[in-house]
Amino acid sequence: MPRAKLRTPELRDRVLHAAVTMLAEEGVVGFTARKVATAASTSVPAVYELFGDKAGLVREVYFEGFRHLGRALAATGRTDDPRADLTGLLAAFRIFVREHPVLADVMFSRPFADFDPGPAELRATASVRTLITGHVQRCVDAGQLAGDPTDIAHVLLALAQGLAAQETAGWLGRSAATRDRRWSLAVRAAFAGLGPA
């Protein structure tokens, strides 16, 4: 009698953890279902049974990235200063990308040809967008920013993504002081441009 297959939630978590770790250590080029299966001490058929195919595994890595980012952003908390809180949120985004550049690449740059997030994936990442928009709304309500909170949130997230990509690629400056100065300059300029007339 064949042995029963054990596709447990624990195995699923182990495979997902192995996939995220492999991306961090080997990048997109070295990422294969076979290597992930070996790292998770399971088989390629088990990986495919759990995730469907490689694209399904990448899809779960994408979701895991947004869960991780959401936790990092939520941990920044709230004070009586909405602008300082929003600045802290952007700083937390920067730290996340610096610490997890390949994961951020999967989330924001689409490095895998066989995975292109559709409407369902974008809906699933809404908690991060909602959190950012909520911080922007507080700034609008306090008169610190002016305009549509959703539009402002998109602009600030695009700015943060661009700056983080430049920093990760080594183009934002050679020293930490230079990178910090340029990051702060861009955020201050954005807030000034988005402030009330």
Rank of each mutant, 00 (worst) to 15 (best):
V140A: 02
G195H: 02
L89G: 10
S43V: 08
A176T: 13
E49F: 01
L103T: 14
R188F: 04
A40I: 05
R98Q: 11
H135K: 13
L11G: 08
Q161T: 10
A176E: 15
P117D: 08
H100E: 15
G56H: 06
Q144M: 02
T87I: 01
G173H: 01
A24F: 02
A19M: 04
L23D: 10
A120S: 13
S184I: 02
V36E: 05
R179D: 00
H135N: 12
P117T: 05
R12V: 02
A92R: 03
T125F: 06
V36A: 06
L194W: 07
E49I: 00
G88W: 07
Q166K: 12
E64G: 01
A19V: 02
F63R: 14
G195W: 01
H100Y: 14
Q144A: 13
P111H: 11
R188T: 12
D105L: 10
S175F: 08
R71E: 15
G65N: 05
L163C: 05
R188S: 12
P2D: 14
R7Q: 09
F96L: 07
R179M: 00
P149N: 03
G88L: 03
T21K: 05
D114H: 15
Q166W: 06
P149W: 01
T79V: 05
G27A: 07
R7W: 13
S184G: 07
A75Q: 07
A91K: 08
D53W: 11
A146D: 08
V136H: 01
F63S: 10
V58P: 11
K5W: 03
T125D: 10
R67Q: 04
A192V: 10
G65W: 07
R188G: 05
L6C: 04
F112Q: 09
G143K: 02
I95P: 00
A197F: 00
F93P: 01
L23P: 03
S109W: 10
T76W: 04
G118K: 12
A153P: 05
A24V: 01
A124L: 11
A24G: 14
P111F: 08
F66Y: 15
T8I: 11
A55R: 06
R182T: 02
H135R: 14
L57G: 09
L16D: 04
G77T: 06
R110M: 04
L185Y: 13
A126I: 05
V61C: 15
E167N: 00
A189C: 05
A197I: 00
L89N: 06
E49N: 07
T87K: 03
L57R: 06
F93G: 13
D53S: 15
V128M: 07
H68D: 11
H154C: 07
K5H: 10
A189R: 07
S184F: 00
L16G: 06
R7A: 12
L185V: 09
L172Q: 00
G52Q: 03
I95A: 15
V187I: 15
D180V: 03
F93Q: 14
L69P: 09
P111Y: 10
F66S: 06
D81S: 08
Q137T: 13
A33H: 03
R98S: 14
M1S: 15
A92Q: 10
F96W: 08
L172Y: 00
A4R: 13
F108Q: 03
T32S: 14
F93C: 10
T130V: 14
